[in-house]
Computed example of a mutant assay.
Amino acid sequence: MAAADFQTGVIPEGFAFDQDGNAIDLTKMVVVLPPPANSGLGWGSVWFSVGADFGDVRLRVATFVNGAWAIEFWDVPRVGNRVTKTLPTNVQKISVGRAKKTGTDLANNAPVSWLLEAALQ
Rank of each mutant, 00 (worst) to 15 (best):
V112F: 02
S45T: 06
L116M: 13
G97R: 05
E117I: 10
G40R: 05
P34E: 07
S39W: 01
V31G: 00
Q7L: 12
F64C: 05
P35W: 07
D25L: 01
W47T: 12
P35C: 04
F54C: 03
L33G: 05
D18I: 05
G80A: 05
T27I: 00
L59D: 12
V31F: 06
D105V: 00
V32E: 05
Q19K: 09
F15E: 02
V57A: 08
A99E: 04
A70F: 09
G55R: 02
G44R: 05
R58Q: 10
L41P: 01
W114V: 03
D18P: 12
L26T: 14
W69Y: 09
G55N: 03
A2F: 11
G9F: 13
G42P: 03
R78D: 14
D25V: 00
L26M: 13
G55Y: 04
T104I: 09
L59E: 13
S39F: 01
N66D: 15
T102C: 00
V112S: 04
F54A: 09
N66L: 10
T104H: 00
V96Y: 00
G103F: 03
K85C: 00
E117V: 13
P77D: 12
W69Q: 11
T104F: 05
D75C: 04
T84N: 13
A3E: 15
W114P: 07
A16V: 12
L87I: 07
E72P: 01
A4F: 15
T84K: 13
V10Y: 08
A52F: 06
G9E: 13
N22R: 05
D20E: 09
N109Y: 04
P36G: 02
F6Y: 15
F54L: 09
V30G: 10
T104G: 04
N22I: 12
V10K: 15
D25K: 03
D75R: 10
P12N: 08
Q121T: 10
A16C: 10
G9M: 13
I94M: 08
F73H: 14
F48T: 08
V79I: 11
P35F: 06
R60Q: 15
A2C: 11
S95D: 07
W47S: 13
V30I: 12
L41G: 12
A70S: 14
N90S: 09
V50E: 04
K28P: 03
F48M: 07
L41A: 13
V57D: 05
D105L: 00
A52L: 03
F17K: 02
D20T: 14
R78C: 02
A4H: 15
G97E: 05
V112Q: 02
T104R: 01
T8L: 11
F17G: 02
S95P: 00
K93V: 00
G40N: 03
W74M: 12
E13S: 14
A107L: 00
G51K: 13
G9I: 08
S39Q: 01
V50P: 06
T84R: 15
A3W: 09
T89Y: 11
